[in-house]
Design a protein around this nucleic acid. Structure first.
Length: 510
RNA sequence: GACCGGGUAGCUCAGCUGGUAGAGCAUCGGCCUUUUAAGCCGCGGGUCCUGGGUUCGAAUCCCAGCCCGGUCACCA
């Protein structure tokens, strides 16, 4: 083209170049640069798989006997090399890449000129037999009238073909670019989909009924987090985005459902880091007549089933570690404390043995001890000294009851709560309880919790009287379980940040 | 919210003991029927995140702010 504008590559100019080609496509070639429905397309992976080496060899021997399979494919242009009268381009779809070769002799003139004018990032359609090039690359040898089409013109310059999009901020903000620039992204989310499906399948096989309970709640209950607030106009009432489905799922046990689960979003108005996003997906399950140990077995099955069916192995890498999902250690909270601190302690209600050494240790670690209860200091030291060692799957059991006021206590050891937390790769993956179903104890705990609230907490937390009424109607003894699905996906896909397993993580507006 | 690190061309990055900016790829132009990170040759391309300050002079030093990442706090 004879163009008077000075060559330049500012963003403006790059876009102008593309708009010029858009115009040219419409005016000179009289085509719609944004295409339409196209039938008969095969994926690039399937196309590659249908390459027939024998037919290709026979064709190269004698071009008159062409039995090469013909495919019609579409993809986004990742590389574009114009070699005079021969054009190569590498295109990409959700599953992989494939090379398209356009020989001037094999196609009509408009097809060739359009192929020549294509920009990186455009989506194209090509049709022709599968053959190889001199270097052995399987390629679609575009052949025939209209065998090369522009399906969608891209007006935005793509990231570099070699380094792709590296900037974490841009990757999360422009996920649609990240996805095609970094093929691993689609693969991760394909796996996420498989993981969630596998969890559902297992839960169904185990006899659990999937349910959906309110995300908009008049009171935010079931966990200790701060909620997001919102408002219903017609009813003119404040509402909260749920922080947990727990209190509703338990109502279902009261009503007579025996095994229920929900996989859905929770919203917690807390900080953001590598393992926390304000909205996250949780599996929560309740099993009537079960307990801590029945849901522990279930948890183990979930992890093993997912690892085996989605990743094909129960030994999977995570960062520098190799995680073995074949074996889950079960160990008591206080035993782990002793293991990593070298001395034994007991909880307050059991006499607080080792308290002096505990306080000395806490101070040595730089932890605040003034005015704190023995069990709180114990937990601070525990988190500081134990968690970093919990790499292989570990069920921590027998938590101090004082730290879990809403959990049933062990009948024979009342100062110990019937709770477990599952740690893998130093992350908390699951949390479970033998659920408290004594309405009077639950009510007393609730009221005590509410009495200790500060002003801010009092705005969104209140005693859920209807839930207490449900417990009075009678909830069977039960085991309850929560598994963080995003973290599960992180582990299975070897992702170091929760943002890598959430399609659109929360970002501040630019 | 606190602390640390980062923000330079469309992309990936140099430059940061102050002298007003570089590379590779992409783009643009030319040549070319076998390239594959990159065929060959050539030309360009920048509010150096924003706003102040110091200085003869600031991408560079100082202050404030914005956005991102990491640690911590909160929490799962």
């Amino acid at each position: 083209m004879t163009d008077e504008t000075a060559p330049s590559t500012s963003l403006k100019t790059l876009i102008a170049d593309r708009r010029r080609k858009l115009q040219r496509a419409r005016e000179e070639f009289e085509i719609d640069p944004f295409g339409q429905r196209t039938d008969g397309l095969v994926s690039l992976t399937d196309a590659r798989a249908s390459y027939d080496a024998a037919a290709d060899a026979a064709f190269k021997e004698d071009a008159a006997t062409d039995a090469r399979p013909i495919v019609k494919v579409a993809g986004r242009v990742m590389q574009h090399r114009v070699m005079g009268n021969l054009i190569f381009m590498q295109v990409r779809d959700a599953e992989g890449d494939l090379q398209i070769a356009i020989s001037k002799k094999a196609v009509d003139r408009p097809s060739f000129l359009i192929a020549k004018m294509v920009d990186l990032g455009d989506i194209i359609i090509a049709q022709g037999p599968l053959g190889t090039t001199k270097t052995g690359e399987i390629s679609v040898w575009t052949t025939g009238e209209g065998s090369f089409e522009l399906a969608t013109k891209s007006l935005a310059p793509p990231p570099g073909k070699w380094h792709g999009l590296q900037d974490a901020e841009q990757r999360y903000r422009k996920r649609y670019v990240d996805m095609y620039a970094n093929p691993r992204v689609i693969e991760t989310f394909r796996q996420r989909s498989g993981i969630v499906a596998a969890v559902r399948q297992l839960m169904g096989d185990e006899g659990f009924l999937e349910v959906e309970t309110p995300m908009l709640q008049p009171m935010a209950g079931g966990a200790a987090a701060r909620p997001f607030g919102t408002h219903h106009n017609a009813l003119d009432m404040p509402l909260y985005l749920r922080i947990a489905p727990e209190l509703y799922l338990k109502r279902l046990l009261v009503g007579g459902m025996s095994k229920v689960f929900e996989i859905n979003r929770n919203f917690r108005n807390e900080g953001i880091d590598r393992s926390h996003n304000p909205e996250f997906t949780m599996l929560e399950a309740y099993e009537a007549f079960g307990d801590l140990y029945s849901v522990m077995d279930l948890t183990e099955k979930v992890f093993q089933h997912v690892a085996q069916t989605v990743l094909g192995s129960t030994q999977l890498p995570y960062g520098d570690d190799e995680i073995d999902y074949g074996q889950f250690r079960r160990v008591k909270y206080l035993d782990l404390f002793e293991e990593h601190n070298g001395f034994a302690v007991t909880v307050s209600e059991a006499g607080a043995a080792g308290a002096e050494q505990l306080i000395a240790n806490a101070k040595f670690l730089g932890l605040e001890t003034e005015g704190k209860d023995h069990d709180v200091i114990l937990n601070d030291v525990w988190e500081e000294t134990v968690e970093e060692h919990l790499v292989q799957p570990t069920f921590v059991i027998d938590y101090p009851a004082s730290l879990c006021p809403l959990t049933k206590r062990k009948p024979d050891e009342p100062h110990i709560a019937e709770r477990f937390e599952l740690f893998i790769a130093k992350m908390e993956l699951a949390n479970a309880y033998t659920e408290l179903n004594d309405p009077d104890v639950q009510e007393a705990n609730f009221r005590q919790q509410v009495a200790g609230m500060d002003e801010e907490e009092a705005t969104f937390r209140a005693v859920d009287e209807d839930f207490l009424e449900a417990l009075r109607v009678g909830m069977p003894p039960a085991g309850g379980l929560g598994i963080g699905i995003d973290r599960l996906v992180m582990l299975m896909t070897n992702s170091q940040s929760i943002r890598d397993v959430i399609l659109f993580p929360l970002m501040r507006p630019q």
